[in-house]
């Protein structure tokens, strides 16, 4: 309990120092509007971004319960998440494209780069899915892998055999 009280005490002091810094360095105009922006940040997270993720996850999981759907669910979920998070970060870059205060800020073609990035993530997702489904397929068909292994052993034996020309 002492540790917890100590941590909480230090936390309150640090937080109050931050509030003091705000109160002494930001003018009234800014201070009055800051809570609106703080509230907006919570709304954006808790009532848009996270529900969007929860809904997407729910839809993907529901879809995965179809026959054979579970094979793809991991790859689809990961791909969607990576596309989502990289797009979230790319949005401000694309919005400000061409509006930098000088030409060395935002010098890329961010729309093109975003499309390339998402295409790469989706391609990687497809490759990941193919690899996963192939290994899952092999695991399900021991007979097939035994056939492959026998063929491989046979091939090596042939290679090792003396050659007569």
């Amino acid at each position: 309990m002492k540790t917890r009280m100590g941590l909480a005490g230090v936390g309150v002091l640090l937080g109050l120092w931050g509030v003091w810094k705000l109160a002494t360095t930001v003018d009234l105009h800014g201070l009055v509007r800051l809570p609106l922006w703080l509230g907006g940040a919570v709304l954006a997270d808790d009532f848009f971004l996270v529900p969007l993720t929860v809904t997407a996850g729910w839809l993907v999981t529901r879809w995965a319960s179809r026959p054979d759907g579970h094979r793809t669910v991991g790859a689809i979920r990961t791909t969607l998440l990576y596309v989502g998070i990289t797009s979230l970060i790319a949005v401000p870059l694309m919005l400000r494209q061409g509006k930098g205060v000088n030409p060395t800020i935002l010098p890329r073609d961010y729309l093109r780069d975003w499309l390339l990035l998402e295409a790469t993530i989706i391609a990687a997702g497809i490759v990941g899915y193919l690899i996963a489904s192939r290994s899952a397929g092999n695991a399900l068909r021991p007979a097939t892998s035994a056939v492959v292994a026998r063929a491989w052993r046979g091939l090596r034996r042939v290679r090792r055999a003396p050659r007569y020309e």
């Binding site: 230090v10 936390g11 309150v12 002091l13 640090l14 937080g15 120092w17 931050g18 509030v19 705000l22």
Partner: peptide
């Protein structure tokens, strides 16, 4: 200032 509030 927000950084101190976050750490607190």
């Amino acid at each position: 200032a927000l950084a101190w509030i976050i750490v607190g």
